[in-house]
Amino acid sequence: MRTIQPLPLDERAAPRMLRPTVFWRIREDIPLSLAWLLSAGSLVLLLLAWLLVTALGIVPPLFLPSPAAVLGAFGRLLGEGLLLNDVVASMLRVLAGFGLAALVSIPLGLLMGAFASFHNLFNPTIGTLRYMPASAFVPLLILWLGIDEAPKIALIFIGTLFFNTIMVADAVKFVPRSLIDVAYTLGTSRPRVLREVIWPAAMPAVLDALRVNMAASWNLVIIAELVAATSGLGYRILRAQRFLRTEEIFVGLIVIGLIGLLIDLLFFALQRRLCPWVQRGGE
């Protein structure tokens, strides 16, 4: 048998070690100051690029209006009360459609997550329906429900119902089995396990599902308003396009984005309020 001798020192390659870095750390935190700097930088860069492109006249203002023009349009629409009107109109549709969907999907999701029997009863149907794009239902909904508020609310309803149900059911499936078993050995009946264990245990994930699907319904309301509406942010954008007021399209887009962000933050605050026991990463 051959014995293996260590290489003489000068023939040995220097041991390779990872070089220290801050920016390129994989799945690790970076200093808070750098995090803030990068986040602020990404917004500032976007704004700067926008300013530069419009100021240099690279793109005609009809295609890309300047930030100043958009700001001006924002002030005008706000002053005329149109913007607020549109925001309220869209918001009410979202609340109605999403609210109804939540009212159905939360109990249904709980049942499907908790009982294999309900899962098998509903999953084939819901699993199929949820892959039909909600926006493709628009013609059908107009045929069925006319062009009033009903088809818009219905679009948001069917667009969020199925996904929300599946996500609530998943939230329930992630409740640790041992929490349920302990409840049984403490003398808890099945209905009370549902109410006193599964519901509170699933609540943080249910709120997460609502947050995600609220964003989806906010997308759907715009689609609904692009087709047949006389108010709302989608309508405002469509109208602006018709009259070639590109800056108003931008106002609409930015307002939609900001409201979406606001809703997100609202849900995070709600979760922190309702579920103080949920520990978040990063301390």
Binding site: S178, L179, D181, V182, V197, P200, A201, C275, W277, V278
Partner: peptide, 10 residues
């Protein structure tokens, strides 16, 4: 009483 902590966190 289980091995993993089964207290209700809420």
């Amino acid at each position: 009483v289980f091995q993993d902590y089964t207290l209700y966190p809420w």
